[in-house]
Nucleic acid binder design. Structure first.
Lengths: 342, 342
DNA sequence: TGTTAGCACTCAACTAAGAGGAGTGCTAAT
DNA sequence: ATTAGCACTCCTCTTAGTTGAGTGCTAACA
């Protein structure tokens, strides 16, 4: 167990390093107001903290830098909850000022404001489209051999897909089809309709319409393809500001990672509420070994869920980001639940 | 006017610099097979070419580097058309292998392949949605006070927008409205329907439906808002490979520029056919002073147009990129005109 | 007269050596 | 238990010197 003094010193070191990105020396700590001991005492404690694995040196005679274990301890035990500036709150509120109706716009704007306020990179996941329920299904023929299938969901999301019509497909065939699909599928969630389409609906359709088989197949792939939730980015190039990312290769790897949907998805903890922090190599991705990721979720309506991630250096201002995410999560949840019926 | 020998030397220098990104010296040129003069002769010619503004030195005793004027001359007069590798052609063809129906997928894939083949950044503009014609108009109510308006265009593009319903709006009101809109707007291009909506349709609607005014207004903004063509990127981080972009700030500025839609739009030459090359400061953007942009357009169906841009360093492999763009343009145009009726 | 060999000169890039300074660990005094 | 003092480490910056690629110019050559 750490002594009180060790806690105090560890905290001071991490705070200082987060602020200045420079190895911190004993003198610098002892100069702080809240610290009353001499540099020598601090050096002794530092040596102990290093032995315990909370601190590291960059070379024999350098100041100390928090290790990953040090950050982890800091985050778990030394992170006094902090209120945020009223100016920041105001700026967050401004997202909801213009009475935007569409979920997408609000989320996009949130991503930008979050990256601005934190000066890190933000990633916001929109609602999981798979959980939306079908409100209306329709097909618009474009020519003799092509048509667009459109699914409108209860949240106002519109999913659409072109497909080719089998030859000799008549308008009345199409109409029948649409009717059957609407009868059977309205109210189902998108993730369920795959099964339903193949299981029930296919047989029914085959009774009424020729060559429905092909059609259903393309419909299934259509609804499956766009399955991932939409992703919004803010401040993609913000890490260029961080001194630890003055290395082109690191930045590149992270930017590339952010273009890969599967990688981005795996940054999040789906279905876990609260705020999660992953520090350095706690991230599964090698590219992120110098980054920390703070994630949380927010609700959209009754059933839907979105997620937020902030990506910064391990030397991230955890206190501030956590506070901001907390406000953001609540505001988004509130905005999306009030005034939103089914 | 330049002598034959000067042309030959200028070409050799530009080619060499494009290849190795190093100032090129007289010796290096004279070693080339096609060059028969001694280094001393070349030095004399180089001095002349420098005086004429086609070459520059990085310092008094360095080799020569092409100036912007040099590149311009090279591009205008020394760019012998070049066939491309059959392997490259094959890779481009692979875009069209899987019988993708949707324009969007083909373009997305094209962006990736182009950036891969060039190792620069590619930007592809999809069809200009404004020129699409309305195929069907429909409205799907979500709740008592919200609905989604959907416009399907002749190309299978689907534009949609949520809006709030005025109170006391009945289902039959909605139906009337949709009918009127379809009667009046089908066949019009999206850019025309703004005017039409406000001019003709509004008055007709007002006769049949109460509080149509608000509705039309949100409809107008809906169709206007999403007006820009979709943009697809390939190889956003490819410039990290180029030695001239080892400067973080340059890269950052360009990446930021690419996030700004208006800036991206202004990279293109709309409505001009052929291949256009802008070198360094010929670009309007300050951020692009070290870049060259090569653009061209392709047709989508009879009326639509898309555009392609490749962004690289001024020391770009113009020959190859021009050749690739030419193939790409033709292949895309072909893919989008055959099998596509109205 | 056009071309080329030779040579002095320039300057970036690298290496080596030394000074300065921030910081440590240890010891001894308080 | 704390801290002042001091020797020591090692990064960082500066300076000086060396190397080598490349130039411009002049004079010789075909």
């Amino acid at each position: 167990m750490l002594t009180n003094r060790q806690l105090q010193i560890l905290q001071a070191i991490v705070d200082d390093f987060i602020m200045f990105a420079q190895p911190v020396g004993s003198r610098q700590i002892s100069n702080k107001q809240e610290i009353t001991f001499s540099p020598a005492t601090i050096r002794n404690e530092m040596a102990d903290l290093e032995e315990l694995g909370f601190l590291e040196k960059t070379h024999t005679s350098s100041g100390r830098v928090p290790s990953e274990k040090g950050y982890r301890f800091y985050v778990d035990h030394l992170l006094s909850p902090q209120g945020i500036n009223s100016r920041d709150i105001q700026q967050i509120q401004s997202i909801f000022n213009d009475r935007l109706v569409e979920v997408e716009h609000i989320i996009r704007k949130s991503a930008n404001i979050l990256s601005e306020l934190t000066s890190y990179t933000s990633i916001l996941l929109g609602p999981d489209v798979q959980r939306h329920r079908v409100k209306r299904f329709s097909i618009v023929p474009l020519s003799s051999d092509a048509a667009v299938a459109i699914i409108v969901t209860n949240n106002g999301h519109v999913e659409n897909r072109m497909f080719s019509l089998p030859p000799n497909f008549t308008a009345s065939d199409l109409e029948k089809m649409v009717n059957i699909l609407n009868e059977r599928l309205v109210g189902e969630s998108l993730e369920d309709i795959h099964k339903k389409l193949e299981a029930e609906v296919l047989t029914v359709l085959q009774q009424h319409v020729q060559s429905a088989d092909d059609f259903i197949r393309s419909l299934v792939t259509a609804t499956m393809h766009n399955s991932e939730s939409k992703v919004f980015y803010g401040g993609k190039t913000n890490m260029f500001n961080q001194p630890e990312f003055h290395d082109l290769n690191k930045v590149r790897m992270i930017l590339d990672l952010m273009e890969t949907t599967s990688q981005v998805q795996s940054l999040f903890h789906p279905n876990e509420s609260g705020i999660h922090i992953r520090i350095g190599s706690e991230n599964k991705q090698l590219e992120m070994e110098n980054c920390s990721v703070i994630t949380t979720t927010y609700s959209i309506g009754e059933e839907q869920q979105g997620a937020i991630a902030i990506i910064g250096p391990t030397r991230m201002d955890y206190k501030r980001v956590v506070a901001l995410l907390d406000v953001m999560r609540m505001d988004l949840t509130q905005a999306f639940t009030k005034n939103r019926s089914d």
